[in-house]
Amino acid sequence: MTIANGRLNTPERPIRNRNKAIETFLFSAVNEVKRNLIVILLSGNGNDGIRTIQTIKEAGGVIIVQSPDSCEFQVHGTNSAQNDQLQL
Rank of each mutant, 00 (worst) to 15 (best):
V30Y: 02
L26T: 05
C71H: 11
V65A: 15
I64M: 05
I64T: 03
A59F: 04
I63K: 02
L42W: 13
N31V: 09
A29R: 07
I3M: 06
P68A: 02
G6K: 10
S67L: 12
D48V: 08
A21C: 12
R16V: 05
T2Y: 09
F25P: 05
T78Q: 14
T10G: 02
I50C: 07
Q66M: 13
K20R: 09
Q82I: 14
N31W: 13
I56S: 03
S80R: 06
I50A: 11
D69K: 11
P14Q: 10
L26Y: 03
N45Q: 12
I50K: 13
N45M: 11
T52V: 05
N31T: 11
E58P: 06
K57G: 06
K34C: 00
G44Y: 14
R13T: 12
G44T: 14
P68I: 01
G46F: 11
D48K: 13
K34Y: 05
N5M: 12
N45H: 08
R7P: 02
I53V: 08
P68V: 01
D69Q: 09
N36F: 01
I63Q: 06
T24M: 04
I38L: 07
R35D: 01
D69I: 04
M1P: 13
I38A: 05
R35P: 00
D69H: 10
A29V: 07
F73H: 14
Q66N: 13
A59V: 04
M1D: 07
P68Q: 01
H76Y: 06
S28E: 05
K57A: 07
V65Y: 12
L88C: 05
F27Y: 05
C71S: 15
G44R: 15
T10V: 10
G61K: 00
E23G: 02
G77A: 07
I15C: 00
G46S: 12
V30T: 03
K57N: 07
I38V: 07
N79C: 08
G46H: 13
G60R: 03
Q87S: 00
I53R: 07
S67I: 11
I56W: 02
G46W: 12
V30D: 01
S70F: 15
G49V: 07
V30H: 01
Q66K: 09
T52Y: 01
G6C: 12
D48N: 11
E32V: 03
R7H: 04
V30I: 04
N36T: 01
V39H: 05
E58T: 09
T78R: 15
L8E: 04
D48G: 08
E12A: 06
R51E: 11
S43N: 10
I22Q: 09
A81N: 10
Q74H: 08
V65I: 15
S43Q: 10
I3G: 01
R35N: 03
N36Q: 09
R35W: 03
L8N: 03
P14H: 11
V30A: 02
Q66C: 11
D69T: 09
S28R: 00
